[in-house]
Amino acid sequence: MAKHYAMAVVVAKCIGCQACTVACKFQNNVPEGQYRTKTPVVGPKGTFPNVSMYFEKQACQMCQNAPCVEVCPTKASHYNEAGVVLVDVDKCVGCKYCLTACPYDARFINKDTGAADKCTFCWEARVSKGQVPACVSTCVGGALVFGDEKDSNSEIAKLLSKNKGEVRKEEFGTRPSIYYIFEGVK
């Protein structure tokens, strides 16, 4: 059975240290001022004494029904053999149609290449070689879990079988591969 790489974000374990943001920039050489992932704060919300805030990692949601792939006029945005959404820089003309289509604001035009850029799950450098993405490997609080969702023995499959994983903007039918576990937060 084909693999399906997925990531779970255990929001309660995230302390907002931005190690993932930094690791991603190191690993992928992302231009200054641009980010493939970052983890902004949500909140603080509520009134004392019932105040809460948490951090929510944002990046490409690796949709299985990706709007960016559908609208791309040159097939530069595509699913690779493992179902990971990638951009073929050579085919991309930088029309930004994918930027308008992505409901997660995950894409940007890379200042150096002029092509659309976004999280790749570190496919080339790490995941294709059996490693986990840089953000996952560096995560201080153990908030990020990565693996093959279809392998019932994988850490992520076990985690998602026990906890409810929510996807962002489910109403668009994009079927993301990033699950947010909000237990203990919301």
Binding site: K75, C92, G94, C95, I109, N110, G114
Partner: peptide
């Protein structure tokens, strides 16, 4: 307006029938 203006000709040679722009 393209991120890579000089590559506009690639729009002619790479066709995606599900893309309205194509």
């Amino acid at each position: 307006d393209l991120g890579r203006p000089l590559s506009f000709w690639k729009l002619i040679f790479n066709v995606n029938f599900s893309s309205v722009m194509s």
